[in-house]
Amino acid sequence: MSEIFHGDDAGETLPELADGETIICVRGLKNAFGDQVVHEGLDLDVKKGEILGVVGGSGTGKSVLMRAIIGLQKPVEGEITVFGESMIDRSEDEATAIRKRWGILFQGGALFSTLTVAENVQVPLREFYGSLSPQLLDEIAAYKVVMSGLPADAGPKYPAELSGGMKKRAGLARALALDPELLFLDEPTAGLDPIGAAAFDELTSELQKTLGLTVFLITHDLDTLYAICDRVAVLADRKVIAVGTIDELLATDHEWIQEYFNGPRGRAAIATVKKNRAEG
């Protein structure tokens, strides 16, 4: 219990993990926009090969945390290491070496609007491995597109011609282009219909297993949390107030956590999971 629930003295209660096991390590992070402090003294570890769900109320800075980890938001103070290397004050060249090893799916897909889906997927490949033959690039883009669950005729389409769900899948295909070890997903199922959301969850989980990915997943979707997350980190009061499996989190008596998982929607999600488990 004390291991998963860290309050003010978080830095001490959190067990130090050996190198190689921790993919992302955040210590004492502080983010602020002017006077508005988003994070203060935030600690978080993401272990290799897990799907870590990040939850929190609106405005608790889930996306800001992700942006800080991937280097788009410069923290006021604190230490962030990814693959054992510090992300703070890193030169552009050193950062590029790390960027090759992760893939990011932004909330709206963030596809390049003037390129087709296939070209979008090829952007990271061309940037880092420009010497690959055009034919091989096409083949790689083709199987990535299909692997991400897009129909085969989506390749030559422009992002404006895609539905919201297809944009997310195309964004996922681009995020997976370089066979990353680490995948960031920012609300991947937001705005998808329940069938599409369930299919996306299944896809994430399947890719995580086959490709051995570590996934940092920001979500509001309780079904996603129950279905695929190994651990869940809860953001509140400007820090990660608890990390653990959902069962472990339910055992805490934090008001927000209880309300989040035991609210009407939370109970419905639990019921679904139990039903699924019972059915085998």
Partner: peptide, 17 residues
């Protein structure tokens, strides 16, 4: 597992208009 995965995704995909 990886080879199975890509084999499953092997189909003709149109790349450009």
């Amino acid at each position: 597992r990886l080879i199975e995965q890509v084999a499953k995704s092997h189909q003709v995909v149109r790349m450009r208009p």
